[in-house]
Amino acid sequence: MNLSLSSVEWHAGSWKFSADASFCPGVHLVAGRVGSGKTTLALLSSRLIRPDTGTIGYDGIRAQTLSFQYPEYHITGSTLREEAESYGVDPTAACARAGIAGREDQDPFRLSRGELKMFQISCILMRTWDLLILDEPFSALDCRAKLAVCRAIDEIQSGIVLVITHEQHILPRTDYLWEMRSGVLTGLGTLPEALFAWESAPGPVRMLRDRGILPANLRRDDMLEAACRMHEYG
């Protein structure tokens, strides 16, 4: 199973997106500053927009989906029940997982954006995907919800998962790190070595890196463990 972007280019006026990359099964964290081209990568990878040049290959990928940054864009039903059913998941379980148990017959627009985001992410994560693209999955969520999403991503056993985010504090277990740099997708490799090359690294990662300490991964526990090592190194 593989997602490949071969010499892909896409233009919006004078701005250019370019990528030459291959995504194998595992969790791929794509970081980058605002406006660097992360959402373009999500749209291209899910084939919602076509590249101007180059090809996007889906090798062995049959079930794929994309989670938009704004959860309202996903709404196609007039109740949460209909909405959950549109994903092919059990409405009661989806509501319970999103922390809004018993509200199956409620209008999705009556939820706050955070609640709606959690509900929509829950629906998506309740199914198995060969390719799962999560564009800013942590936006509008509080710390507790972000941690719940991270745990759910950690539990994914198969398929390619692209977590595209500029989140700086709460991140999931990551197998491969990528960075969007002014429209250019750059592969940084596997963790923890990839952390050396991460230009837009979160503050805690930069602080640890400057002291020669690398966390094993990007989960909160990994960061805490690395922070504890600071005392050992003085």
């Binding site: 989906t65 938009f68 196609t76 007039s78 549109s86």
Partner: peptide, 19 residues
Amino acid sequence: SRSALSLKGMQPGIRLIPA
């Protein structure tokens, strides 16, 4: 919204117009 429909494997139809 059309993209969301295609991601869910749904076809745009009269039933979806109100939503």
